[in-house]
Measured scan of single mutants.
Amino acid sequence: MLDDRARMEAAKKEKVEQILAEFQLQEEDLKKVMRRMQKEMDRGLRLETHEEASVKMLPTYVRSTPEGSEVGDFLSLDLGGTNFRVMLVKVGEGEEGQWSVKTKHQMYSIPEDAMTGTAEMLFDYISECISDFLDKHQMKHKKLPLGFTFSFPVRHEDIDKGILLNWTKGFKASGAEGNNVVGLLRDAIKRRGDFEMDVVAMVNDTVATMISCYYEDHQCEVGMIVGTGCNACYMEEMQNVELVEGDEGRMCVNTEWGAFGDSGELDEFLLEYDRLVDESSANPGQQLYEKLIGGKYMGELVRLVLLRLVDENLLFHGEASEQLRTRGAFETRFVSQVESDTGDRKQIYNILSTLGLRPSTTDCDIVRRACESVSTRAAHMCSAGLAGVINRMRESRSEDVMRITVGVDGSVYKLHPSFKERFHASVRRLTPSCEITFIESEEGSGRGAALVSAVACKKACMLGQ
């Protein structure tokens, strides 16, 4: 009897593995994704193909990295998701002549009506938060230079001027797309009239992360975010950046690689679950690469896999709870928690219980395998993109072996128990001629924006502006 049951459990697990095998990517698959990513990057950089390229390769006008001589107080704003952060950054000489960066910050959550109302409502709310922060720190009387981390696709015309191309991540505030974001912020500050600010720089969160990590390690020339969304930036040779005049030196390019796949480059790798996630998203047909990796989508992918296993009578005796059938019910943090389970399955059992399920031991094991399959594919897909960037940098610099540091931020990278190990191992397999160091950014977005502002202020002083 026991043997029969054991055989049935083994057969069930084997069927589960057959279904989950769809998520496995072979090294040849990853090399294919990497080569296609490089081709799209090239198209994004070139003037004649930029418009139709899915990977936009947006110039950021960040050319210099901090040298350690900029000092002063800077205000930093960070808008990239449902939370908005205001930070005071003091850049100065530390002990023994070292450079020191001290920060104080406060988080504000953005109400739904500000995210989806008008641009005026959104930026009025942001300036209200700045006003509140300055009151708390008794700094209303000071006109501070301000660095703005704005983590949406922007076409820069200068370091302090950028046109919002399109909202992502659930934002829909009308009247912002096609307009200068810094102008919208300046107008809102003017409307309030109770404080003055000098907006000197606007950067993407990947750029802010790279600059913040450069402060720790001067070989950091790539910034990457794996959180709600997924994106990367890197220092490109100016001669390859056709959208900006000049051939000397390097400029940081914001790849906006989340949109890779929007022209069909990933079609052969998309599964039924991916198509369902895409169809029910706020932007169907867009940001397809990001939807395979980002935390906004990972939990939902797992939920759809679990429903398939229920329908195949391989999980929960073929019956799903009402909660499990509800879109968004299986949160991405559950994926991390399930994979963090120590082996007694308590954590998995508790999560499934909150979803109205009474799982068996085998159910718990199957749910864990589903989570591992989805998150491992995410790590491997992400590795193909980064390997594409790094191999490109090595080739354009004609280096036999390139040493490089990548600064990384984002909740999936930082909080998932195995993502970074799987990701690092896969990147290294795909970049055999590179020695890569990964560092995690601390308060990256805010500190990085302030350091970019410090560079901009120093330049302005040198130019006598």
Rank of each mutant, 00 (worst) to 15 (best):
L2D: 15
D3I: 02
D4T: 02
R7Q: 11
M8F: 11
A11K: 08
A11W: 10
K12A: 14
K13N: 05
E14L: 09
K15F: 09
V16G: 04
V16Y: 08
V16P: 03
E17D: 04
Q18F: 15
A21H: 15
E22T: 07
E22R: 11
F23G: 01
E27H: 14
E28R: 05
D29A: 15
L30W: 02
K32Y: 01
V33A: 08
V33S: 01
M34A: 07
E40C: 02
D42F: 12
R43G: 04
R46D: 08
R46N: 06
L47A: 03
E48H: 05
E52M: 10
A53E: 01
S54H: 12
L58Q: 14
P59S: 06
P59F: 03
Y61L: 11
Y61R: 05
R63F: 12
S64L: 05
E67L: 10
E67S: 08
G68Q: 13
S69G: 11
S69Q: 03
G72R: 01
D73W: 01
L75R: 02
S76G: 11
V91A: 11
G92N: 14
E95I: 15
E96I: 05
Q98T: 11
Q98V: 11
K102E: 13
K102F: 13
H105P: 02
Q106N: 14
M107Y: 12
S109G: 08
P111E: 14
A114L: 14
A114C: 13
M115A: 14
M115I: 07
T116D: 15
G117E: 12
T118F: 05
A119V: 08
M121D: 13
D124I: 00
D124F: 01
D124A: 05
E128W: 04
D135H: 05
K142G: 07
K143N: 09
L144W: 14
L144P: 03
P145L: 05
L146H: 00
G147T: 10
G147S: 10
F148A: 13
F148T: 06
F148S: 05
F148L: 12
T149L: 07
F152D: 15
V154D: 05
H156C: 09
D158R: 07
D160L: 03
I163S: 14
L164F: 12
N166L: 09
W167R: 13
T168W: 14
A173I: 07
A173Y: 09
G175R: 11
G175N: 07
G178S: 10
G178P: 07
G178K: 14
N179P: 12
V182P: 08
G183Y: 10
R186S: 07
A188P: 02
G193H: 05
F195E: 11
F195T: 09
E196G: 07
M197R: 09
M197D: 09
M197H: 12
D198G: 09
V199D: 13
V199G: 09
V200Y: 13
A201F: 07
M202A: 05
V203N: 08
N204Q: 09
N204G: 07
A208F: 01
T209Y: 03
I211N: 04
E216R: 02
H218S: 09
C220I: 04
I225K: 12
I225P: 00
I225H: 10
T228W: 14
C230N: 13
C230Y: 05
Y234I: 00
Y234F: 14
Y234E: 07
M235Q: 00
E236M: 02
E237M: 04
M238K: 03
Q239W: 11
N240D: 14
V241I: 09
V241R: 00
V241N: 03
L243N: 14
L243H: 15
V244W: 07
V244N: 03
D247M: 06
R250G: 01
V253S: 01
V253E: 00
E256C: 07
W257P: 00
A259M: 13
S263Q: 11
G264K: 15
G264I: 00
G264P: 00
G264A: 10
E265W: 04
D267I: 05
D267V: 06
F269H: 13
L270T: 15
L271K: 05
L271M: 06
E272V: 07
Y273W: 13
Y273N: 01
V277F: 06
V277Q: 09
D278G: 01
E279Q: 13
S280R: 14
S281N: 03
N283S: 13
Q287R: 10
L288I: 15
E290S: 06
G294Y: 05
G295F: 14
K296L: 15
M298L: 15
L301T: 07
V302L: 09
R303Y: 00
L306G: 01
L306T: 04
L307A: 12
L307K: 08
N313P: 00
N313I: 07
L314P: 00
G318D: 12
E319A: 10
A320K: 14
E322P: 06
L324G: 00
L324W: 00
R325K: 14
R327Q: 15
R327P: 10
R327W: 12
G328S: 14
F330A: 01
R333Q: 05
F334A: 10
F334H: 11
S336T: 15
Q337C: 04
Q337I: 07
Q337W: 06
E339W: 02
D341C: 15
D344F: 06
R345L: 12
K346D: 03
Q347W: 06
Q347L: 12
I348N: 04
L355R: 05
R358V: 12
R358D: 08
S360M: 09
T361K: 06
T361R: 11
C364P: 01
C364I: 12
I366G: 02
V367S: 01
R368T: 11
R368V: 13
R369M: 14
R369Y: 06
C371A: 02
C371L: 02
E372A: 08
V374R: 00
T376F: 12
R377T: 00
A378S: 08
H380V: 11
H380Y: 10
H380A: 15
M381Q: 01
C382H: 03
S383G: 14
G385N: 01
A387S: 09
V389P: 00
I390E: 00
I390P: 00
N391K: 10
N391Y: 10
N391R: 07
R392Y: 03
M393T: 00
M393Y: 03
M393N: 02
R397Q: 00
V401K: 15
T405E: 07
T405G: 14
G407M: 02
G407Q: 02
D409F: 10
V412Y: 06
V412A: 07
Y413H: 02
K414I: 07
L415A: 12
P417A: 05
S418E: 12
F419Y: 10
K420Q: 12
F423W: 01
F423D: 00
S426T: 04
S426Q: 15
R429F: 14
T431F: 03
C434Y: 02
C434M: 00
I436H: 01
T437H: 03
T437W: 05
F438S: 01
F438T: 00
S445C: 15
G446P: 14
G446K: 09
R447V: 15
A450M: 10
L451S: 08
V452M: 09
A454K: 05
A454N: 14
L463G: 13
